[in-house]
């Protein structure tokens, strides 16, 4: 039974997301559209499953939701900070620095999520990965101390992502 379910839904989260996106594209909820969205949500992950054999087997959904809420909150708060820096600080007083974040995460999906989060939370942009994928290059807009930025990223985001992709 579980074998059949695994074959039918190689990626259950993607099935749900595709169905929701389909219903939202129609912009009205009707039973027919939900069913059609579910059909698409079953066919597309099944048809594309061959191309991503190393996808994460399971993520902790509850922790992922908490993570999303934290990130959205950070985006709002930190955007105001960066707007303030851009508007009030003269260029000569800015202290842009490069920060190297050593990575404990191994899965490409988790590293992508971390890099995206770093870029979206203002003040930092993830710029590059080292050639073996063991550290992430981050550019900070205005920071006194590279170690503090690194520790905050590791503590606030990477630790949570590690729990999600365990």
């Amino acid at each position: 039974m579980t074998k059949v379910l695994n074959w039918l839904f190689p990626h259950p989260l993607m099935t749900v997301i595709l169905a929701v996106v389909w219903v939202m594209l129609q912009n009205k909820v009707s039973a027919g559209m939900v069913v059609f969205g579910l059909i698409l949500g079953i066919i597309i992950p099944r048809a594309t499953a061959v191309w991503w054999p190393d996808r994460p087997k399971a993520i902790v959904t509850a922790k992922f939701v908490v993570y999303c809420i934290i990130v959205v909150w950070d985006i709002i708060v930190a955007n105001i900070e960066v707007a303030w820096i851009v508007l009030t600080k003269p260029n000569s007083k800015l202290r842009p620095i490069w920060v190297e974040v050593p990575l404990d995460l191994r899965q490409p999906e988790a590293i992508t999520l971390l890099a995206g989060t770093i870029t979206l939370t203002p003040g930092t942009v993830s710029a590059d990965l080292s050639n073996e994928g063991r550290s992430l290059l981050v550019h900070a807009l205005d920071a006194a101390d590279a170690d503090a930025v690194r520790d905050e990223i590791k503590h606030r985001y990477e630790r949570r992502l590690k729990e999600i992709f365990e």
């Binding site: 842009p96 190297e100 050593p102 590059d128 990965l129 080292s130 050639n131 994928g133 063991r134 290059l137």
Partner: peptide, 15 residues
């Protein structure tokens, strides 16, 4: 831009 230092754990940045 100003170039970053080489990474501590690996040889160089992939770009």
């Amino acid at each position: 831009c100003d170039m970053p230092d080489a990474p501590k754990h690996d040889e160089m940045w992939s770009t």
